[in-house]
Design a protein around this nucleic acid. Structure first.
Lengths: 90, 90
DNA sequence: GCGATCCAATGCTGTCTCGGTATCGGGTTC
DNA sequence: GAACCCGATACCGAGACAGCATTGGATCGC
């Protein structure tokens, strides 16, 4: 599990498209595709249904998505709170 | 930022000792020391005070610690919830 | 039906990250 | 002041990872 992979997952879930998400993340399609496969492998579950039009979130994917967003948000908060107030940031 | 580094940080904070935390994580002392330095660099703040006895958490470190624990807990929950119920895990 | 098109997945390669070993430098203890 | 304990750094080799090129499957247009 890695924060990078979680970010990739969220981007693909939001775009419904590996290629499009890749551009958004300044990556190319193959590594992003592998991120999703790695996550699915680690979780032991398919997160997306592969359709000719792109990637469609499966129920397990929706569950993971909500947690993924929370995790990323927590990380942002942690960074902000730590570097910000107590340290003479602003 | 990486989950591995966050785990390292929590271990060092709990042990008050890089070497001891390293053993706990099945790592050696140098990489663990680098994890902490990398985090401090990324956050732009010292998280620990280096003493002759080990590592003492600074205020910024305590702030980050509480968030770090929450992040790791969220990840665990995400994994459990995703692989577990909705998917026929059991 | 067949070529064109769009999608994700895979094979391969170069690079960069990361962990381990060895060593250093500072500070304390006796 | 020599031994000891601590984290930090230099260096090196292995593994991870991104990118390029290509494949394979499904749909669309003619």
């Amino acid at each position: 599990m890695s924060l990078t992979y979680i970010q990739s997952f969220v981007a693909v879930a939001e775009e419904g498209h590996v290629g499009r998400a890749a551009r958004k993340l300044h990556l190319t399609q193959p590594p992003l595709s592998r991120h999703i496969l790695a996550l699915e492998d680690e979780l032991g579950t398919r997160l997306f249904e592969r359709t000719p039009r792109g990637m469609k979130l499966l129920p397990a994917g929706e569950v993971f998505l909500s947690h993924a967003r929370r995790i990323l948000a927590e990380v942002d908060i942690a960074i902000e709170r730590t570097k910000g107030p107590g340290t003479g940031g602003r």
